[in-house]
Computed example of a mutant assay.
Amino acid sequence: MIVYVECSFFIPDVSSLKGKRSVLQRMIERVKNDYNVSVAEIDYQDLWQRTVIALVCVSSAKEPAEGEVRRAVRFLESNPEWELTDLQWDYY
């Protein structure tokens, strides 16, 4: 089972791509280190207040993969530096 989710975020307090990268890289590294998921920025690389992050987890059953992705999404949502604007789930 493959669980895939796209998370769209608005980052209101940054005023440059450098500021965005600071927030984004810190969160991506934490997700990579703390959760059993693959993660990457997949859209809006040239915009400084928006980003889309994709998370993927592969498992032999749906429940463990979905649980791990949900924990990672909750962690991303907990960051006060950005606001979650959209969440799209897919299962393969």
Rank of each mutant, 00 (worst) to 15 (best):
V23N: 01
Q49C: 04
K32H: 08
N36H: 06
R30E: 07
E66S: 14
G19M: 04
K20F: 04
D43H: 11
S38I: 02
P12Q: 12
D43Y: 09
P12G: 11
S38N: 06
I28W: 00
E81L: 07
S8G: 14
A54D: 03
Q88Y: 08
S38F: 02
A40V: 05
I11A: 07
E83Y: 02
I53E: 03
D34F: 11
A40S: 11
D86E: 13
C7V: 15
W89F: 14
E77H: 10
S16D: 10
L84R: 14
E66M: 12
P80Y: 02
V56Y: 03
L24D: 00
V39S: 02
W82P: 12
L55G: 05
V58A: 12
A61F: 13
L47K: 12
Q88P: 04
C57T: 10
Y91Q: 12
V3H: 12
A65I: 13
D34N: 10
V37I: 03
S8Y: 15
K20R: 01
R71I: 00
P80M: 00
V23G: 01
D90W: 11
C57H: 08
L55H: 08
R74N: 09
A72V: 01
V37M: 04
E63D: 13
L84M: 14
I42V: 15
R30L: 03
Q49K: 09
D43V: 00
V52S: 11
R30C: 07
S8T: 13
W89H: 15
G19R: 03
R74T: 15
M27Y: 02
V3S: 14
S8V: 10
V23W: 02
Y4M: 15
R30T: 07
Y92C: 11
V52H: 04
I53F: 05
V56N: 08
E41Y: 07
Q49D: 03
F9C: 09
D86L: 09
W48D: 00
R21D: 02
E6D: 15
C7S: 14
L87Q: 11
N33P: 05
M1R: 14
Q88E: 14
E41W: 02
D90G: 15
F10Y: 15
V3M: 13
K18E: 09
Q45P: 04
E68Y: 05
E68R: 00
V73A: 04
D13E: 10
D34C: 05
E68L: 03
V14S: 02
A65E: 07
V39H: 03
V73G: 04
I2Y: 13
V5R: 13
P64L: 07
G67Q: 14
G67H: 13
L17I: 01
I42C: 09
L76E: 06
L17P: 10
G19V: 03
S22T: 09
P80F: 01
D34W: 14
A61M: 15
I28Y: 00
A65V: 12
F75A: 04
D90K: 15
V73W: 01
N33W: 02
R71Y: 01
S78Q: 00
M1G: 12
L84Y: 09
K20S: 06
Q49N: 11
K62Y: 14
A54L: 07
R74I: 10
C7Q: 10
M1N: 12
F9W: 05
M27S: 08
L84A: 06
E81D: 09
E83V: 07
S38P: 04
A72I: 01
N79H: 03
K20C: 06
